[in-house]
Design a protein around this nucleic acid. Structure first.
Length: 1078
RNA sequence: GGGCUCAUAGCUCAGUUGGCAGAGCGCGUCGCUGAUAACGACGAGGUCCCAGGUUCAAGUCCUGGUGGGCCCA
């Protein structure tokens, strides 16, 4: 079948959709799996994507990597699992469902019904998994989409039970309490990892509060807080023993504060907000001044205050009773001289550090808040009030009672719920934990895998060492049902390891549960008998599990660990995992390693590769709320996914990728379009010429030097691509391929173009076609993992249409092997040299304002190396044509004389690479002295085999120590680069001048032909009117007629011209007119 | 507060064992005109963040800063 006619302006998104449909119709993916079935395995483990929203462009980076490497290993004949994962359970899904219903808090969920709510969460995850599946297909991501894993599956959930049971058996599961960040709206604790993501800068009304010292009437401590509600739970006041404090007298009262704190200028600790618009903070000193005159009466060490007792601000509330008797000044080394008063309000029930300190010192804990962030009944006027609305009232109340010293609006970073954006509070809660006492084992697992980049391992180990015990519970609804049955009667708890165990242990509720997924609320009805006290109403704890558990059991649950161990052993551990780096050290990677170490004592992957983030055009993180996020679908249809994939594949993995229209355009222009242009150039010619790849072949010795060169470079590229792909460095494949495309376009095709024109199938034409065909099909296969659509489209035309026996998809073709026999390093170097010399020639022309259109008599090359000399000899024709000269000559003494090339002046520059070591300490001064040498004399001396001395220094110069730069006479245009010098003869004979004029005329006529809408083959009558054209026409008339298909050439205006134009040629006005031949 | 990391052209980034500061984009000039809304060439553009130090020689090595980013506390 003939080759397709290729439109130069391609609609890539449309082309991609066509290929998608074709794959779908022909079952191309299934066919690939069939081809590789039973072959050596390559195990990829997919980190599940959160199935809660449609994909953004940022998801496409990681997925591009996943698909690229899968396609590469498939092309090597490896069997793959192709299993995609969806992360389904967790708060983020709940939040969206809540939003849909407009729920404000957990009460509304319970009113709505946990069962209905959980079902909707499930449905939402399924819905977006389906949407993401379609989007992933559009990305060209080849996966076994009917076999994706879902973290909400029974297999996955029961798998986690098994893990937790193991932890339990080792005594690592415990119920703990801690003061932790809590989201009052979501009614759940926020883990350390989650909190890191939620900091925002906000203003709070802060309070300076008086604490009257019981032992010393009239004397007060002053503490400061940005969270006045915590004052209700104050237990102690902390000072640093070695810090200096001042005692200040104001009116009839005395106050204690830190000396440095007292004197410090204060600032808001914010970075993002516009600092100029922030109100200034008053120093503590100024705050005193505001209250009237004062005087510092004494300086003392903090130690002098320790042990004093004081009256708390809310001792009258029932809830604070226990603390009231305990109020005392304690020593704490964390107290600072920076912000605050130097005396720190300690509320162990309202702050993590406070809680730790309280534990250490055995202080009572006052926990004032309920789950929903409201005050407990024992807190008097605050009872039932939500914590986020009481600051003003608390301040007003303290003011009324005279214990408020001052208040002030204060801007700072404060943690917020990463999902609902509400402010977090610190709250004392019971949660379930896995002890990390065995962290060293996990570290060992981490070390057992290879990490790219290498520092990833260090980062992970660092995290593992610092990580506290893993809080695995969440007081929510949609998630793993923690398999912990906790006996209310005796406090004994146990972990159930799987469904069968639960069935065996169940004494009630099983029948209702049977047939349900192990989720709330259905699982909650199953009761067991307490193994310790025999109580028969032991229920599961209410909590659900941390979602990172869900994602981390997958190396086991998805590979058949619990159902088909033999199969599991074939795929575990995974050969490859690739995910975005930031965050995952403390999330998925951490959890994966923890679970897998518990289950099998080793990492679940052999190699982990990480990459950075996708940010917008100007480097800012993409956020839906900032309006700079780009949805995947939009980008896919605007730029095409091949462009997107190339952009991602070519990016440096450790650096954030800037994604935006500008960068997509750049990628398209730099890579996709040049590649397409080369391809369409070939296909269109092949179509017209009736090229048949089976028939029009060429042996190596029938091919031209250029052919052998491009084949050499091609196979070097194949070799490099293999190395790069298999070391997971696709960016290198991209950069090398791009370099190849560039040289293919700008040299091979450019230089070979004419070989494709003309009718007969000469040996040379066959060679050109055969070579081009091999280059295109090979390069196409090479890039197929990166740009699967475009390469498929090209393959269908270049191969499938020509050969019925060929594999039906480019992705079924084995990856090409480098033919080392075709690689000729020295030929590549010679071609590179010829390209360099042409570039020098162009530079010389440019410097002397001699346009390429003007033919010149002679190009003289003084080669800088043997390679260049050979290049000039071998590629003389190319040099002549590219530079439009009549002759190319290699410089020699005889040549210089013969063509009257004047002696040149030469400047001398030191080559510091050799001069440095040789001159040592004197190198600097030598450098200047050398530059002043007479270059001609230096060159002559070298020519005689002598070295050259430099005044004032001892060593002498050899040829390799200096660079000599030549200057050329009036008749010559020259350029030099290193040791290479080229010269162009600037002298124009009348014949040369005429030829130049003729080419000017031709160019203008061609442009006029195009304007007039003539077909390439139309013949014309041409009229030229202008002074001084006769001689030129006499010499070059035939040439002009030939080039412009002018059957007639007149030196008079054409009477009924189709088009005319007035131009200037060699500064002379010329009128050109033409009409179509009848 | 501690650790890691980055800082090079207007932009995005290379720069290996220390040895004449680079690429692409953008910009400017020009060319080509049967790859044509395409393509090519040439050019301009630098306080290599700052200050010290080592060295004949520092973008590169060392020390200390400044400024960004990430992580931890």
């Amino acid at each position: 079948m003939p080759f397709n006619k290729i439109e130069p302006k391609a609609d890539f998104p449309a082309l991609e959709r066509e290929m998608l449909a074709m794959w779908e119709k022909t079952g191309a993916f299934d066919k690939l799996r069939e081809i590789n079935r039973g072959k050596p395995k390559w195990s990829f483990l997919d980190g599940p994507i959160t199935a809660n929203n449609p994909m953004g462009v940022h998801h496409a980076w990681g997925r591009t990597y996943k698909d690229v490497y899968q396609r590469y290993f498939a092309s090597l004949g490896r069997e793959l699992r192709y299993q995609n994962g969806f992360d389904c359970q967790g708060l983020w899904v709940e939040v969206e469902v809540e939003k849909e219903h407009g729920f404000e808090d957990k009460k509304e969920i319970e009113k709505f019904g946990i069962g209905k709510f959980v079902t909707e969460c499930k449905d939402r995850a399924s819905k977006f998994a389906a949407i993401q599946t379609e989007q992933s297909k559009r990305l060209g991501y080849w996966m076994d989409w009917d076999n994706s894993y879902y973290t909400m599956s029974d297999e996955n959930n029961y798998g986690i039970w098994a893990f937790l049971k193991k932890c339990f058996e080792k005594g690592l599961v415990y119920k703990g309490n801690d003061t932790m960040p809590w989201c009052p709206r979501c009614g759940t604790g926020i883990s350390q990892m989650e909190m890191n993501e939620g900091y925002r800068e906000v203003a709070h009304m802060s309070a300076f509060v008086k604490l009257p010292i019981r032992e010393r009437p009239g004397e007060n401590l002053i503490v400061w807080t940005t969270t006045p509600w915590t004052l209700s739970s104050n237990v102690a006041a902390a000072v640093r023993e070695d810090m200096t404090y001042v005692k200040i007298k104001q009116g009839d009262q005395f106050y204690y504060v830190g000396k440095a704190n007292f004197e410090n200028a204060r600032t808001h600790p914010v970075q993002q907000l516009d600092l100029k618009t922030l109100p200034n903070l008053m120093s503590l000193q100024s705050i005193f001044k505001n209250n009237g005159s004062f005087e510092v009466v004494e300086e003392l060490k903090g130690a002098a205050l320790v042990g004093l007792t004081y009256d708390g601000p809310f001792d009258m509330l029932d809830g604070a009773k226990e603390a009231a008797v305990a109020h005392c000044v304690i020593a704490w080394k964390e107290v600072t001289e920076g912000e605050g008063t130097g005396i720190v309000h300690i509320a162990p029930g309202c702050g993590a550090e406070d809680h730790q300190l309280g534990k250490d010192l055995g202080l009572p804990v006052v926990a004032p808040l309920l789950e929903d962030g409201s005050f407990r009944a024992e807190f008097g006027f605050l009872a039932g009030r939500k914590v986020d609305g009481v600051a003003d009232e608390i301040l007003a109340d303290m003011k009324k009672r005279g214990v408020l010293f001052a208040k002030e609006k204060y801007f700072h970073r404060y943690p917020h719920c990463w999902r609902c954006k509400d402010e977090l509070v610190f709250r004392l809660v019971d949660e379930w934990f896995i002890s990390m006492s065995w962290r060293d084992q996990i570290v060992e697992s981490a070390r057992g895998a290879k990490w790219i980049p290498e520092w990833g391992l260090d980062r992970e180990v660092d995290w593992l060492h610092n990580m506290g015990d893993w809080m695995i519970s969440k007081k929510r609804y949609w998630g793993l049902a923690l398999p912990i049955w906790d006996c209310k009667a005796c406090g004994h708890f146990e972990v159930i390891g799987d469904r069968d165990e639960l069935k065996a242990r169940a004494i009630s509720g099983w029948d209702e549960f049977e047939g349900r997924s192990p989720h709330r609320p259905w699982i909650d009805g199953v009761k067991i008998r307490c193994a310790s006290c025999g109580d028969e109403s032991v229920s599961r704890v209410k909590e659900v599990g941390n979602p990172w558990l869900d994602a981390s059991i997958v190396p086991f649950s998805t590979m058949g660990y619990f159902s088909d161990r033999e199969n599991w052993e074939k795929w575990f551990p995974a050969d490859f995992v690739v995910e975005a780096l930031p965050g995952q050290f403390r999330n998925w990677f951490y959890a994966l390693l923890t679970v897998s170490t518990m289950m099998e004592g080793r990492a679940p992957f052999k190699l982990l590769k990480g990459h950075a983030l996708v940010v917008d055009d100007v480097g800012q993180p993409m956020h839906k709320s900032d309006g700079n996020a780009i949805w995947f679908d939009e980008a896919a249809e605007q730029f095409g996914v091949d462009v997107m994939r190339w952009l991602y594949a070519s990016a440096s993995p450790e650096r954030n990728v800037l994604f935006g229209p500008k960068h997509c355009d750049e990628t398209r222009r730099d890579v996709i379009l040049p590649w397409w242009n080369i391809y369409s150039f070939f296909s269109n010619l092949a179509r017209v010429d009736g090229f048949d790849p089976a028939e029009h072949t060429a042996t190596l010795d029938q091919r031209s030097l250029l052919d052998n060169w491009i084949l050499s470079d091609l196979h070097t590229l194949v070799r490099t691509a293999h190395e790069a792909y298999s070391s997971f460095d696709v960016a290198k494949v991209c950069s090398e391929a791009q370099r190849f495309i560039d040289v293919l376009s700008t040299w091979y095709v450019r230089r070979s173009r004419r070989r494709f024109y003309g009718g007969e199938w000469s040996t040379d034409k066959r060679a050109a076609y055969a070579t081009m065909y091999e280059v295109l099909t090979t390069l196409n296969r090479l890039m197929a993992p990166i740009i699967p659509f475009l390469s498929e489209n090209i393959y269908q035309n270049l191969v499938v249409r020509q050969d019925d026996a060929a594999p039906k998809s480019v992705h079924h073709v084995p990856f090409p092997q480098a033919n080392e026999g075709l690689i000729d390093e020295s030929l590549s170097q010679r071609v590179a040299a010829s390209i360099r010399i042409v570039s020098l020639g162009r530079s010389a022309r440019k410097n002397s304002k001699l346009k390429v259109r003007q033919p010149l008599a002679r190009f003289v090359v003084d080669p800088g190396s043997d390679t260049e000399r050979e290049a000039v000899e071998q590629f003389e024709d190319h040099l002549r044509e590219e530079l439009n000269v009549k002759e190319v000559t290699i410089a020699s003494e005889q040549v210089l004389k013969e063509f009257d090339i004047p002696s040149v002046t030469i400047s001398v520059e030191p080559n510091m690479k050799t001069v440095g070591p040789k001159f040592g300490r004197q190198a600097s001064s030598a450098r200047e002295l050398i530059a002043q040498l007479d270059g001609v004399k230096v060159e002559e001396a070298f020519a005689r085999g002598e070295t050259v001395g430099v005044d004032g220094v001892e060593a002498t110069l050899s040829p390799e120590d200096v660079l000599l730069t030549r200057f050329y006479g009036d008749d010559w245009a020259g350029a030099s680069d290193g040791a290479t010098t080229v010269r162009l003869d600037k002298r124009l004979t009348p014949e040369l001048r005429n030829e130049g004029l003729a080419r000017d005329v031709v160019r203008n006529v061609q442009s006029l032909r195009k304007q007039a809408g003539l077909d390439i083959a139309d013949r014309i009558v041409l009229g030229l009117v202008g002074s001084g054209l006769e001689e030129m026409l006499g010499q070059c008339g035939a040439y002009i007629q030939n080039e412009t298909l002018a059957a007639e050439l007149h030196t008079a205006a054409i009477a009924d011209a189709l088009a005319t134009v007035e131009v200037k040629i060699a500064d002379q006005p010329v009128s050109i007119g033409l009409k179509k031949m009848a």
